[in-house]
Design a protein around this nucleic acid. Sequence first.
DNA 1: CATCGCACGCTTGGATACAAGTTGTATCCT
DNA 2: AGGATACAACTTGTATCCAAGCGTGCGATG
Lengths: 232, 232
Amino acid sequence: MTLAARPDAASTAARDDGRVPTPDSAALRAHTAIRAAILDGSHRPGEMLSENELAQRLGMSRTPVRSALTRLQDEGWITIYPKRGALVRRLSDREIAELADARLILEAMGVQRASTEVRRALADRLEPQLNAQREALLARDLDGFVTLTIAFHRSFVEAAGNAVLAEIADRLTDRQRLLLSAHRETLFERVEETIAEHRALVERLRADDPAGFAEALRGHLMDTHGPELGPV
Amino acid sequence: MTLAARPDAASTAARDDGRVPTPDSAALRAHTAIRAAILDGSHRPGEMLSENELAQRLGMSRTPVRSALTRLQDEGWITIYPKRGALVRRLSDREIAELADARLILEAMGVQRASTEVRRALADRLEPQLNAQREALLARDLDGFVTLTIAFHRSFVEAAGNAVLAEIADRLTDRQRLLLSAHRETLFERVEETIAEHRALVERLRADDPAGFAEALRGHLMDTHGPELGPV
DNA sequence: CATCGCACGCTTGGATACAAGTTGTATCCT
DNA sequence: AGGATACAACTTGTATCCAAGCGTGCGATG
């Protein structure tokens, strides 16, 4: 399958054939807006979301809001209690650890499945990105770093050439975003350690050492950031 | 996290405290009904689903049907083309292979992550189920066998004790169900082979040999059923 | 005869109206 | 005073209504 475009990725822009696509539906706008509000802390875990309130604030009716909420539930952001409301989920320590562990598995397996050539090529491609990562961290540009590190880690999964896996990993990463924002200070305090760990991962790629890569990745997760954050 | 109950798993039944829970919403009924209709072949890949028609047939309005359709899209069953309709997806050969491969990874990793004790206990638990699997196949009881084999394979993922992973695997399995129905004849022709392969998996568990398990699982996928079906 | 344009009918997307369920509160009885 | 009960306000769930987009087919036109 071709990697399904994330629904929110759709945006209103002229296509190459000149035709203007259908504008983003209100349901999509609601989805992105609510998700963003959860991510930036406007809606905190434990908070109850009201369809009416959201609809009013977003300038639309309850219908698209409802649609967005059910999707957010499927994606693990909220829990809908019938006839009572939607609760912003709080990730338990266990779930946080499991999310990180699951992504670890997918990334390690992606590298293991790749061929030697792919691993080498990946190392060549990723190595120059390390500096940009450091710059972003030093500039305390959280969004910039998050974008970079997500792409960095995604490369490992992609190496397996399995789009289904890649999409699963994307969803996991998406849910972990919340944690990155929450631990921004920790992140900015460990710039060199983080970059060094990333560099070690690239080195294991270049050395064509998948087992060592998996080990380094586990260390990147467990030793440095603790189970409450996961690999960045 | 506790393993999130699949939405369809909810059903109207008296709870132990005697209270009658909220009856299943129309949206849930629509979701299960349409999904079942796709699974049993009533709606074939390439077919266009009409909200009006579905609503009429299910005896409800278009609103819950729409809700169900968007969810089915998120789960990979259909593709919704804005303002045009919902198309039942056809799994490409590549996607089928990727689904099987992804599940393979999760199951092999689940067993690898488990402790020796868990592997042994799992072998003890699964071994007696093999006969029931054979009986179901011999009786040409597809539903019965599918239930058994899904539980069988699920056990491997569960062994890792990671609920997030287990849920991901469930979703993959769900999408693969369609293939099991499509290949029922092949399935019934290879009864002893299938059981023997399952038995081999149990043996690798008992021998505390995760690597051999992974190898056997790969064979279960590639050699016997070919990439178009995946491990059963 | 081929092609372009346009209008019509069908579809979905969203808004509004209405029904039904849940929770909290006030009231009444013991 | 404590507890059960009735009620009221608010919530979500569903139906209906309206608007807008897309495809189709007919007809005019070159």
